Simulated assay, not measured.
Amino acid sequence: MTLTLTVSDEVRTLVPGFTHLAVEARGLVNGPSDETSSALLDDAARRLAERLDGQAPDKDPHVAAWRAAYSAFGAKPSRTRNSAEALAKRALADGGLPRINRLVDAYNAISVAHLIPVGGEDLNKIEGSMRLVRATGEEDFVTVAGGEESVEHPEPGEVIWCDEAGVTCRRWNWRQGPRTRIDDDTTDAIFLLESLTPMTLDELRAAGEELAEVLQKVSPGARITVRDPE
């Protein structure tokens, strides 16, 4: 069954230029980072450096648009960076990008190369549909702090992704919860690529198609579908 993704009218009113594209993948085989996934990350860091040409990531127009979107719902973008900017800073720093597992490496590489937030969720851990909404502040966000499971609540008005069980990602694409994240046992997943004006639909589609290609590289034989931008 295809996962239903919806964006609330409140979010669309807050940030009219928002678009997202989904890549569904089934029959995946994940595992520890390897030479293939590591090479994808190294190439993404090289492409990012060429794109920025010495500038900081926040000078890129798409990253700047995300900073404005975060400010619109009350977040401080210098303290809680969107996922693309946070990864870009790590890619340019000593030590470079972290190696997590093959699937996470693949979508992190696309995020860095295209400077676009990309998230991955285990389809078998999502309950019901997924929605992008503005929080009431009562929603549960289950996380881990100090090795112990804890429950947080988003700020009222914060933009969140959620399913029927609670928040899956806080502050739009800032911090994913452990409940639905991709791990070594993941076989079916959905990857969300999120864009704002000035990124064009053609640029968003190109990122989605490249993600489909690299997923085939790290997990040959997977059944992958690129869904139209929504």
Rank of each mutant, 00 (worst) to 15 (best):
Ala113Asp: 09
His114Phe: 11
His114Asp: 04
Leu115Asp: 00
Pro117Gly: 04
Val118Pro: 01
Gly120His: 10
Asp122Pro: 12
Asp122Ile: 04
Asn124Leu: 13
Lys125Leu: 12
Lys125His: 10
Ile126Trp: 08
Ile126Ala: 04
Ile126Pro: 15
Gly128Arg: 15
Leu132Arg: 06
Leu132Gly: 04
Leu132Phe: 10
Leu132Trp: 07
Val133Leu: 08
Arg134Lys: 11
Ala135Ser: 12
Gly137Trp: 09
Glu138Lys: 15
Glu139Trp: 15
Asp140Trp: 13
Phe141Gly: 00
Phe141Tyr: 06
Phe141Val: 04
Phe141Asn: 01
Phe141Glu: 00
Val142Phe: 08
Thr143Tyr: 15
Thr143Phe: 14
Val144Gln: 07
Glu148Leu: 13
Glu152Lys: 12
His153Thr: 00
His153Ile: 03
His153Glu: 02
Pro154Phe: 15
Glu155Arg: 15
Glu155Leu: 14
Val159Tyr: 07
Val159Ile: 15
Cys162Gly: 02
Asp163Asn: 11
Ala165His: 09
Val167Lys: 06
Cys169Asp: 06
Cys169His: 09
Arg170Gly: 05
Trp172His: 06
Asn173Ile: 00
Gly177Lys: 05
Arg179Pro: 12
Thr180Gly: 05
Thr180Lys: 14
Arg181Leu: 01
Ile182Val: 14
Asp183Val: 13
Thr186Leu: 11
Thr187Asp: 03
Thr187Glu: 06
Thr187Arg: 14
Thr187Ile: 08
Ile190Gly: 11
Ile190Thr: 07
Thr197Asp: 07
Thr197Glu: 07
Thr197Ile: 07
Asp202Lys: 07
Glu203Met: 06
Glu203Phe: 10
Leu204Gln: 00
Leu204Asp: 01
Leu204Trp: 06
Leu204Tyr: 04
Ala206Ser: 12
Ala206Ile: 08
Ala207Thr: 03
Glu210Trp: 01
Glu213Asp: 03
Val214Cys: 03
Leu215Pro: 04
Ser219Gly: 01
Pro220Arg: 02
